[in-house]
Design a protein around this nucleic acid. Sequence first.
DNA 1: CGGCTTTGACCGGCGC
DNA 2: GCGCCGGTCAAAGCCG
Length: 123
Amino acid sequence: MSMKRNGGEDHHHLGVAAVKMKKNKARRKVREPRFCFKTMSDVDVLDDGYKWRKYGQKVVKNTQHPRSYYRCTQDNCRVKKRVERLADDPRMVITSYEGRHVHSPSHDEDDSQGASQLGNFFW
DNA sequence: CGGCTTTGACCGGCGC
DNA sequence: GCGCCGGTCAAAGCCG
């Protein structure tokens, strides 16, 4: 019934729940570029050379498949990645990248990452 | 032991 | 004003 979250983990150690979302409202509207790519692959996480950590999964009301949310686990890389599967074409995956990487991909084991930044403009 | 994954719940914005 | 949708965070558990 309407259990919702009233009987399960309500109080807990609160503090966390109370403090919850105390983020600053001074959030600037940094209109970061939004890149959307259509990938024809059976796998969701295509290793672009970066490390991604899944932080959520929700189903949208126009898709029969759940949308996956990924975030860059780098140091100063707050890039977000959104992956959605098409219902019409299950083998088609829409990968949307939000933000800009501030460091070279960990793929540069051979190449120093202190120079490819400019050349890496595209990827 | 660390790091990543998964689920639930809540919030914020928008529409009507 | 309220409802709906989408999006994010948090904690716990599991695996390597």
